[in-house]
């Protein structure tokens, strides 16, 4: 039930209603982005954001920096294991 899919916001379709088009694994979907908009982050500035989509809503932004860091850590582990 809590499943969510990562997608990238490609276009804002309705600033008032906070609706955007998100590319989710190659499929375009209309998504409500009210949850990820605040004073620091306006509706318009959401284009290009990666978000987690759940039941038609973008529930949170995905942070690239942290993702890269996690993968880097695992890469290091893999190298260490390969070295024995």
């Amino acid at each position: 039930m809590c499943l969510g899919i990562p997608g990238k916001i490609i276009e804002i379709t309705d600033v008032q209603q906070k609706l955007a088009v998100v590319n989710v694994g190659g499929v375009k979907r209309q998504v409500n982005i009210a949850c990820i908009v605040n004073e620091q982050h306006s509706v318009e500035s959401c284009v290009g954001d990666w978000v987690l989509v759940h039941v038609g809503f973008a529930m949170n932004r995905i942070h690239e920096k942290e993702a890269i860091e996690t993968l880097r850590l695992l890469e290091e582990l893999a190298e260490a294991v390969a070295m024995g």
Partner: peptide, 20 residues
């Protein structure tokens, strides 16, 4: 980054299993 396939890579999974 697509935030899906990167987190399914067998080589890293294998390293993790060995560490575990």
């Amino acid at each position: 980054m697509k935030y899906v396939d990167e987190f399914r890579e067998p080589k890293k999974a294998d390293a993790l299993f060995r560490a575990i």
